[in-house]
Design a protein around this nucleic acid. Structure first.
Lengths: 142, 142
DNA sequence: GGAATTTAATAAGTATAGATACTAAATAGG
DNA sequence: CCTATTTAGTATCTATACTTATTAAATTCC
């Protein structure tokens, strides 16, 4: 089998296409969020006061990477961190008003661009792809 | 739609699983090659004397990234670079004997682990997944 | 054939992505 | 209650991954 036909290569290329579509669209809309920053902000808004380790667990990142991602969200003024009173090691993360506003504006854009990521597939194929991908991920999660 | 069900997220997670399986297996076999380094070495062995820009084009990377990847392959003694006589800007890249030997040893391992990447799917589903992924990529390539 | 453009590679900068090690704080076990 | 372990976050290191800028060389084209 040639390397370019292997599952790993195909997945890497799709990830490349996906992140490229994402950043192109964000730039076109005058927004400044990466795919990972969007995923983190989504998890934070869905769970106000969540700690960083839980954000990492939810979107399947390691703690070191998520620390940097939340640093950048904080620099942009989209989230705030406060030391937890229950556990002084933990930082509770919440979206700011600006972060919520930005997320509300970006969510429909992100939803719309999902279709472009799989532009080579028709609707039933898109659905099938998502089903198969979900199976791969669920199996890995145990 | 929730973020964790979006195509971009599913693809990112699969890429994570894929690279994780790859590095785990390499480590278990006492080898030291990343997925990208393997892809680059594969392209170089298939096209001896290829220049860096062509390696980048073949495996869909930008030139800046591929420069670093080939740096590391060179450090490991797997490839050699020589200035092209036809075009003094270009560097011709070739695998060394050690690089060829290492590739021959690693290829069957990499082929075998492809199945584990899609471990959540049965054989027809694996085939279907690859077909759909190829469609997504081919459409993007134009 | 000389200027304008393009191209190969590198450099610098930002953002993942994960491994490892470290600090501080919480919890478990005896 | 005190030690041992675990856990949250940060820091450090390596490796992608892409953008923009720079240098040098090749090509275009008028």
């Amino acid at each position: 089998m040639h390397a370019s036909k292997m599952a790993g290569h195909l997945i890497r290329r799709m990830n490349q296409i996906s992140t490229h579509v994402f950043s192109q669209r964000m730039q076109a809309e005058g927004r400044d969020l990466t795919p990972v920053q969007f995923a983190a902000l989504d998890a934070i808004i869905a769970n106000p006061g969540i700690d960083q380790a839980s954000v990492a667990a939810r979107i399947a990142y390691d703690r070191a990477t998520i620390g940097g991602v939340i640093d950048r969200l904080e620099q942009k003024g989209y989230v705030e961190r406060t030391v937890s009173r229950r556990d002084r090691r933990a930082r509770e993360v919440r979206a700011t008003k600006l972060g919520q506003k930005e997320f509300d504006a970006i969510l429909p854009i992100v939803e719309a661009l999902q279709n472009d990521v799989l532009a080579g597939l028709n609707d039933p194929e898109k659905e099938l792809f998502r089903t198969l991908a979900q199976k791969v991920i669920d199996y890995d999660a145990g």
